[in-house]
Design a protein around this nucleic acid. Structure first.
Lengths: 204, 204
DNA sequence: TAATTAAATGAACGTTCGTTCTTTTAAATA
DNA sequence: TATTTAAAAGAACGAACGTTCATTTAATTA
């Protein structure tokens, strides 16, 4: 047999990405073979090469699409009218929500940078740095306007991001806490960690 | 040729572990072949099997030894006489120090759990949980004695550990900051994040 | 000193890997 | 409708994989 009735190149490419995502997130890029991906899609190995030049390109697309989506939907929220504390709160909620819904993407983009060849590595690294800049900028703005008090904005940003990325290593949908609770807790901890003082509130 | 003059089983086993460590940390377990490890040690592939039953056992030893060392040298510090805030400070400094000196071990134990078969997975997972318990206990103690104020001790512990583990993704020895500075910054941020209030200090 | 054990080599095992190629059939285009 | 292009199958490629094995030599033990 050969071309299947109703087959469509664009849809098949999407299915390949969709099936490759959880496989790579769970086993790691090197441990996932093209045959595993093909099997999950329900297609022959060779067919994948009609849609991706090689295995590496699947990973690049996964990571690149994810970073674009992460940055893009943050930009779309347009937090520019909020003050830095509100911006940081919104960012924490946004990132946790993204972590929970798209945990596999987040994990891969964090973990598999090392699996990329230099060109692709620079591409994704650049997108990641741009995303980190979001947090750095919020913290710097908060410092300058005097509502945050941190020792070093860069270290603070890395610490905040680290703690957030960790969420999807322990979060389980059926766990003790709801997403809203987790968001609330992280918002509170994060704001405290950057030395935010509630105005007109001497309690904390 | 065969057995080499001066060769010693225990020393060769150690060399295998020592060389496998950075390889696996940089490329990931699945991407490192037994031939690569053998090449780094300067030995034939087959010789490895005189010291390890299979590839998986190398990873298990790396992770197990690391977790034992991490826990053991923390226990040896014996922070039990300190108050929770001092304990948490000591823990942050200890963990960052460990991260910087033994970044590869920390990274592997965090990343390659998924590469372990069920039995080994449970073994390492148990050790990791015990280590997480250190932080949970400190935070709970601080809560009970009223010097910390967190929403949820478990979430707080995960957040603290996540931020600390992140250090070795961005720390570079030749970077802008010294280890002591990084420790200081993290101590300050961490203590603030758990709602610690300096006694007799109304400033922060 | 003789016999045994330990630690290495180097070749070989069957399997799986990423990738390519030819062929077949469906869909799109002229 | 005839032709071209797209998308699949399936076989095949050489290379690399983890592992085993016979063999050789050094170190240890009897």
């Amino acid at each position: 047999m050969a071309r299947i009735k109703g087959s469509d190149g664009r849809r098949t490419a999407e299915r390949i990405l969709r099936e490759a995502l959880p496989l790579i997130a769970q086993r790691g890029y090197s441990a996932v073979s093209m045959r595993m991906i093909a099997g999950a899609v329900g297609v022959n190995v060779g067919a994948i090469y009609n849609h991706f030049a090689n295995k590496q390109q699947i990973l690049v697309r996964l990571m690149s699409d994810h970073m674009d989506g992460l940055q893009g939907s943050w930009d779309a929220l347009d937090a520019s009218d909020l003050n830095p504390a509100e911006q940081l709160e919104q960012f924490v909620r946004y990132h946790i929500g993204y972590n929970i819904v798209r945990g596999d993407d987040v994990f891969i983009s964090f973990m598999e940078l090392r699996s990329l060849e230099p060109r692709s590595h620079r591409l994704i690294e650049g997108k990641r740095r741009a995303y980190e800049d979001v947090v750095r900028k919020i913290i710097r703005d908060g410092e300058e306007s005097g509502i945050f008090d941190v020792e070093d904005a860069h270290v603070a940003a890395m610490s905040v991001l680290g703690s957030l990325i960790g969420v999807n290593t322990w979060y389980r949908a059926k766990g003790r806490l709801t997403q809203a609770q987790i968001e609330d807790f992280y918002v509170a901890m994060t704001l405290r960690s950057v030395g935010y003082i509630h105005q007109g509130d001497s309690d904390v």
